[in-house]
């Protein structure tokens, strides 16, 4: 029997689209890695031999290490704070009986849907109005807003499937309520915590549009510092830094895959 032509064409088209999307998504990363390994002092893909010279210069970039440390600190603090606040908020939303629960859940996830610029500008004005002019606390607070939606989203989904009878069971077996939460709910929901935490951490780590409003000369997060390098002295050192960040991200995703499974991380 001959297969009809049209579905075959459709299938071929779908495969082409898929391949094109993958290429489109991966090409910039490949180019960045390539440029970082090129000996040429301008942005150019390596022709022939490779060189590590730009990586050697990474360590000598002025202000890079403080920027990396600041970004890591901010992301770590925001993730930790969001995991605690997000868990409590998610429990209230899933278990509570008060009116407006859905609205609150949507509101807490809404920063994901708002342009970062709007949030950044709003934060700046709000903090100024409150008299908060320090860069660091402003950044920390703002980044909690960045991370919280990721944590909320995965935890609400995780808690909706969580059987709270497990906590009752742990209590009748001899654990106080707080210990039951710690020994049963936390391990059972570990995938949600890890997923929400990782994505939130990455979102904070590479946030530009919100941070730009809240940083000062002494407190520059990594993305802002990178963009400044690009303006001042555009050489492939930036590509080397970017490649290191890509490697770090791959490592994080690998750990996440080992602990939770990539499909579960992407699915929630």
């Amino acid at each position: 029997m001959r297969r009809p032509l049209l579905p075959l064409l459709g299938l071929a088209l779908a495969w082409i689209m898929l391949a094109a999307s993958v290429i489109f998504l991966l090409a910039p990363l490949v180019v960045t890695v390539g440029v970082s390994l090129s000996p040429s002092p301008v942005f150019q893909l390596p022709q022939g031999e490779l060189s590590w010279r730009w990586y050697a210069r990474v360590g000598r970039l002025e202000g890079l290490l403080p920027a990396v440390l600041l970004s890591l600190q901010v992301a770590a603090f925001a993730t930790a704070a969001s995991l605690v606040l997000g868990t409590l908020a998610a429990i209230a939303v899933v278990r509570g009986q008060f009116p407006g629960r859905e609205a609150i859940a949507t509101f807490l996830v809404s920063p994901l849907m708002l342009p970062g610029l709007v949030i950044g500008l709003a934060m700046l004005q709000y903090f100024r109005a409150l008299g908060l002019r320090e860069a660091l606390p402003s950044l920390l607070l703002a980044h909690v807003i960045i991370v919280l939606p990721y944590v909320m989203r995965t935890l609400v989904a995780g808690l909706a499937l969580f059987d709270f009878a497990l906590i009752d069971a742990a209590r009748t077996l001899g654990l106080s309520y707080p210990r039951a939460v710690l020994r049963v709910m936390v391990p059972v929901l570990a995938p949600s915590f890890i997923t929400g935490g990782l994505f939130g951490f990455l979102a904070s780590f590479d946030n530009y549009p919100i941070s730009i409003f809240l940083t000062d000369v002494y407190h520059r997060t990594l993305p802002i510092q990178l963009l400044q390098y690009l303006g001042e002295s555009p050489d492939p050192t930036i590509a080397a830094v970017s490649t290191l960040i890509i490697a770090l991200t791959l490592l994080v995703l690998f750990i996440g895959d080992r602990m939770v499974g990539l499909s579960r991380m992407a699915g929630v």
Binding site: A165, L166, D168, A169
Partner: peptide, 29 residues
Amino acid sequence: PAHRRNVGVVFQNYALFPHLTVAGNVGFG
């Protein structure tokens, strides 16, 4: 409170701990 009473409960849907093995569940208390 529940954790100080010596009262065992078998729940309707069993409420077994999914992150533990059979032995881990039985030894939980």
